[in-house]
Every structure is written in structure tokens, then in C-alpha cells.
Design a protein around this nucleic acid. Structure first.
Ligand SMILES: [Mn+2]
Ligand SMILES: [Mn+2]
Ligand SMILES: [Zn+2]
Ligand SMILES: [Zn+2]
Lengths: 154, 154
DNA sequence: CATGCTAGTGCAAGTGATTGCAATAGCGAA
DNA sequence: TTCGCTATTGCAATCACTTGCACTAGCATG
């Protein structure tokens, strides 16, 4: 019998957005496969921003037979479920944000390569400015703005 | 002898930013080649936004032997001279803006695929918001924001 | 537990873009 | 005009994705 945990009596410990992902997929007529499990395992321990290439590499560490096309397709599915969001770095390469708490855009420093999230208020300012101007409805989650961060702008 | 033109006596007609490009390249130790002339000829009659792929196709119409790598490299050179600027569409693909009158970002409608320039004031609002927030210096010319235009947002 | 429908996988081919390298060809200088 | 230095070119290889297709394998159902 396992030792009693501080999280007593079988109650949910700390719920993760990944919990029940298998069931949620099946509920939509989709399937829970070993390949998807591998990717979700990788994502589960990787909050923040990652490139698709990095994710493929991490999957391959766990399963040597990992195929890029399968990973890309699974990322698309997970994006439909809101578990990841992708944007594009300054080179146009895909960057995934795991578990986006809320819709937000990204900043990328061309000098040091670092990435930040645009804060909600600042994002709202951008959305408002473009709505007022051209009536354009910004998809903030896909916005990556490049430039130079406070440290790198000389 | 050619008939007299309305632009009398050999004075400059309507100056183009492309005028003297050959000399400007040479002045920087660079060279004026047939391949570059082909691309400049294509760009000369193509104000606005184009994808690199379209440019390659247009060059090939004029010179069947056009090579992609040469076009991409020449576009880089022309970008250094400020004659084109590139950004990235929502799929991360390169889009070139020919003869940008001023630094500006772009909007891309995910529904109809159209592209617009962000107006100076609106661009300034974005730059200011991010400067105030994180001290980030936005490279507006590389910004492409996707979303839905007035017509497509239902 | 066995069966069938069909979502998902792997592969190969294709597109867009970048890069190293050897051969070519501008162009400034003689 | 000729010459030589070296910027450019073309090519092949490589990377980041994407897509069509035939085969595999989840999983709902009985
Ligand atoms: Mn870019
Ligand atoms: Mn995208
Ligand atoms: Zn930086
Ligand atoms: Zn539209």
C-alpha cells in the first residue's frame, strides 16, 4: 500500500489541463494513440515556448520512431483543443506556446533571440487600435512582433 | 532623331528610387549582374506586396535560367538598400513590399487573404504601447498581424 | 472477445527558403 | 584592352513544413 500523501483521501491533487485529454479526444471521435501520448508527455513537462523542431527532437528521445508529419498533425489537433497555440518567429519558423492561459501575442528580440508574452493590457491596446482604424479583428494569439528588447537596444 | 518629348531638353523626367541602382551597388563594392537586372526590372513594374515565389516566377518569364537562391540573395541585398522590405504571411511565408515609402507593418486577413498596410498613426500606437510596457523597440517593418478584415469578420 | 468503420500513421514527394562550395564573371586598375 | 581580385552565380544538399495515399490500428458496438 502506498504511503499516505499530503493530498489526502483520493481527492484531485493539482488538476492539469492535460488531464482527461484521452477522453476528450475520444469524445470528439478522435483517437488516443501511442504517438499522441508521447507528444503529450513531452508537452506536459514543457510550459512556455518551444519550436516544433525541438518538440520533434524531444519526442524522438522517448520514441526513436517519431515521424515529423505525425507530430505536426497532432499539434494541429491539440491547437484545436486550445492546449497549444502557434505563432511564427522572425524567420517564419513555427513556435508553440504550451497551455496558453489566455490569448496573447509574443515579442521576439532579434538580437538575443528571447521571447516574451505581450501583456494583456498592451495586447488590448493593439487590438483596439486596429479595430478603431480599419475595423480589423486581430488574432492576437498568432501575433509575433520582432524588434530589440530593453537590454539589446543599445 | 526621336520626336521631342513633353519632358524637354534632357532633364530628369520622373525620378524613380530604382534610378542609379547599378551605380549605388558598385559604389558599395557590389556588382551589377544580368540576374540582378532581371529582378530589378520585375520589381520596377510591381509596386506593393509580392511573395518571393511570385517574384521568382516573374523573373523566369524574362530569363528562363533564373535560380531561386540568386533571387533570394539579391532580395537580401535590395533590402539592405531599403528598396524592398520583407515580412511573413500567416503561414510564415515571405512577403516583400516594394519601395516602402515609410516603415510600416502589415495586416493579413485570414479569411480573404488580403493584405493592408498599418497606417502610420496606428503603427505608432503599437510602437509606443510596447516601448512603454517592456521598453521593447519594435521593428515595425517586419510586423504582420493576422486576423479578419472588416468585411470578413461576420 | 471478435469485428468493422475510419481516424491516424508512415512514407515519399513536393514547396519554400538557406547554405557551402567550386566555377564564373563583374569591374577597377594598369 | 587586358588582368586579377573577389563578388556572384548555380548546384546540390539540407532544413522546416505540408500533403496524398495505402496500410494500420483505435475503439464503439454487438
Ligand atoms: Mn523575416
Ligand atoms: Mn501560422
Ligand atoms: Zn534581446
Ligand atoms: Zn478579409
Amino acid at each position: 500500500m502506498p504511503q499516505a500523501s499530503p493530498n489526502a483521501a483520493g481527492r484531485l491533487p493539482d488538476a492539469s489541463p492535460w488531464d482527461g485529454i484521452a477522453e476528450r479526444l475520444r469524445a470528439s471521435g478522435l483517437r488516443w494513440t501511442p504517438q499522441r501520448r508521447t507528444l503529450v508527455d513531452v508537452l506536459r513537462e514543457h510550459e512556455g515556448h518551444v519550436t516544433a523542431t525541438e518538440l520533434i527532437a524531444r519526442c524522438r528521445e522517448r520514441d526513436q520512431t517519431t515521424t515529423p508529419s505525425t507530430v505536426y498533425r497532432t499539434l494541429d489537433v491539440l491547437e484545436d483543443f486550445g492546449l497549444v497555440k502557434h505563432g511564427h518567429g522572425p524567420g517564419g519558423r513555427e513556435e508553440y506556446h504550451v497551455l496558453p492561459d489566455q490569448v496573447h501575442g509574443h515579442l521576439h528580440c532579434m538580437a538575443c533571440g528571447a521571447t516574451w508574452e505581450i501583456r494583456p493590457e498592451t495586447g488590448a491596446a493593439i487590438v483596439d487600435a486596429l479595430a478603431a482604424d480599419l475595423g480589423f479583428a486581430v488574432d492576437l494569439s498568432h501575433v509575433t512582433i520582432s524588434g530589440r528588447c530593453r537590454v539589446c537596444r543599445d
